Amino acid sequence: MFETGSTAPSMVLEDTSGQDVRIPGRDAVLLYFMRSTSCPICNRHVRDLIGSAVGVRVLVVVPEDRARAAAWKAERGIPFPVLTGRHDSPHEMIGLSRKVFGSMQQSGSVLIDAHGVIRHAHGATLPTNSYDKKGITAAIAALIRGPGTSPVPAG
């Protein structure tokens, strides 16, 4: 998993329309990595992000293929771009692997500022522990306060 305070490596993911999305970009971005689109807990976390992630661009990353991701986005009315891996698992790209005999996809969140610095990184095997709302909120608040604020540790 990425480390808070480190520089994010370049990644190219794909949105549901097939367009490349380069991470990091020119703006601050919060990436929420879902365990799967069928995970009710992850879906609840996305609904919470819809109402609470203000001040940064939110991207939802799913392990499914583009067609399934597009169907889920449309069915749920997700206002954020939904991303998949072009060739590799986007979760594996950041160190969120499958645990417990390869059956449990880890999920989590990463906040990257406009300079490519990771301001928050949190992941977990159990979806109930993967959404660090307090940590995300604090990291976004520090980011909005401006230069000179230090990254907020995950926790």
Rank of each mutant, 00 (worst) to 15 (best):
I78V: 15
K134E: 13
G77S: 06
R76M: 03
H122T: 05
K73G: 08
K133D: 13
N129Y: 07
R98M: 10
G108H: 14
G135T: 05
H91M: 08
A121K: 01
S103K: 12
I136Y: 00
R86H: 09
W72E: 03
A124R: 11
D132W: 07
K99H: 09
Q105W: 00
F80W: 10
L126W: 11
A141F: 05
D132H: 01
R119W: 00
T84N: 04
A139R: 06
M93S: 11
R76Q: 15
R98V: 06
V82K: 00
T125A: 05
S97N: 14
S103P: 04
K73N: 10
K73L: 08
G77M: 10
D113R: 03
D113N: 07
R76A: 14
P79H: 11
T84P: 01
G123P: 00
L111N: 11
P79R: 12
Q106E: 15
A71H: 02
L126P: 01
R145N: 13
R76F: 09
H115W: 07
A74T: 10
H122E: 14
I144W: 01
S103F: 14
P90V: 08
I94N: 03
L126H: 13
L96C: 13
S130R: 03
Q106L: 02
R98L: 12
L83H: 10
R86Y: 10
A139S: 13
V82N: 10
M104G: 04
K99N: 14
L126A: 14
G85Q: 04
I78N: 11
P90W: 01
G95F: 07
A121S: 15
T125P: 06
K134Q: 13
R145C: 08
N129T: 06
R86E: 01
L126Y: 08
Y131G: 01
I94K: 04
T125Y: 05
P79Y: 13
I136C: 07
V117H: 05
G108I: 00
I94F: 03
L126F: 07
G123W: 02
F80D: 13
E92G: 01
G135N: 11
F101D: 15
I118M: 05
R76N: 12
I112P: 03
L143W: 07
I144Y: 02
L96I: 03
G135K: 01
H115L: 09
T125R: 08
L143G: 03
D132I: 08
I140S: 04
K73T: 15
D113Q: 02
S97V: 14
S97I: 12
G146E: 00
R145I: 12
L83N: 02
I136N: 01
S97Q: 08
